[in-house]
Amino acid sequence: MATTTQTTSAHHGDHGHAAHGPELQHHFETPAQQKEAATLGMWAFLVTEVMLFGGIFLAYAVYRWAFPDVWAEAAHHLNTPLGTVNTVVLLVSSLTVALAVNAAEHGRRTRLLQLLGVTLVLGVAFLGIKAFEYSEKFAHCAGYKTPIAWATGGELLGEQECLVPGRAFAFPAEHGAATEEHASTNKTPHQLFYLLYFIATGLHAVHMLIGLTIVSILTFLAWRGFFTPTYFTPVEIGGLYWHLIDVVWVFLFPLFYLVH
């Protein structure tokens, strides 16, 4: 055991641990190198995220190209006002994250904590609204008008409508001839739209959860005074991740909610 300690300390002595903060890992030479590695690593990871969502967007493009009318009909049953509100929420959270990185860079701990806190609240708000939208769809499947009505056994939905893909899927036939030919079956491309909607927004929501976890950890670390004006890389690359989630939503919003 004694030898271990000796060797290790000798090694550390060799590349001068005294000259820099404790956050520099042993295999890096300078803090700048470590920071560049972290940033580049995050960007390479974001490339994988973009390609991951790219697959879904490609499927979307293929089917929208094939069924433009179905897309227009189906999209009208999404809650565009709530989608718009959520877009605003996410854009504001992006601003707070950008400002948080700035605050960390200038060593303003209180402001950093405030901004990260606001981001957390906004992220949770986004997921709350999203959950409400989902539950609205499920409530319709159960035959109730709103999720609250569903929970309390309140007002029933007049017409049959179920936009959750699956056996029970039933797209309301109100648009005349186009849907009449499918009247006997629920196997219509409308399901494709809603399937893509649930998968894309669901995967986005999963990323939001991961993002919220990251921001919570950052908040905790900031509260513990972990970040200094010379070392705030986690805030920066955590911010990059958060912005990417925002970018994905920037495309999801017009592609699902704003279709004619």
């Binding site: 992006s94 911010g239 990059l240 912005h243 990417l244 925002d246 970018v247 920037v250």
Partner: peptide, 16 residues
């Protein structure tokens, strides 16, 4: 186009 512009702005400035 609007979505791409927004993305460009976020990537250039917010993402540094």
């Amino acid at each position: 186009t609007i979505a791409s512009t927004k993305t460009l702005l976020i990537v250039l400035f917010f993402m540094h």
